[in-house]
Computed example of a mutant assay.
Amino acid sequence: MSRLALRLAAAGTLFLLAARSAQAHHAMDGELPASLGQGLLSGLAHPVIGLDHLAFIVAAGLIAGAAGVGLAMPLVFVVASMLGVFLHLLALDLPAAELVIAASVLAAGVLLAWGRATGGRGLWLALFVIAGLFHGYAYGESIVGAEATPLLSYLAGLFVVQAAIGLGAAALASNRSWTTVSLAPRLAGAVVMGIGVSALAGQLIPG
Rank of each mutant, 00 (worst) to 15 (best):
A171G: 03
A131I: 08
L106A: 15
H88L: 01
A108R: 13
H88W: 07
S174N: 14
R121A: 13
P150M: 04
A113F: 09
N175Y: 13
N175I: 13
T149I: 12
V105K: 07
E147K: 09
G68C: 11
A126S: 07
A138L: 04
Y154G: 08
F159L: 10
S174K: 14
L123H: 10
A72L: 15
A72I: 12
V105R: 07
M73A: 15
L75N: 04
L87I: 00
F159D: 06
A107L: 15
D93M: 02
L89C: 05
V79E: 00
A96N: 05
G136D: 08
A102Q: 09
I143E: 12
S81C: 07
I143T: 04
D93C: 03
S177I: 08
N175M: 15
L71Y: 06
A108N: 11
G70M: 09
L152W: 09
G189T: 14
A66I: 10
F86I: 10
Q162D: 01
F128Q: 01
A171N: 07
L183D: 11
A173H: 11
M193N: 07
A102D: 03
L75Y: 03
P150T: 04
A103N: 00
G65F: 01
V191H: 11
S153D: 02
M193S: 08
V78R: 01
A173L: 12
A148Q: 09
I101W: 02
A190P: 11
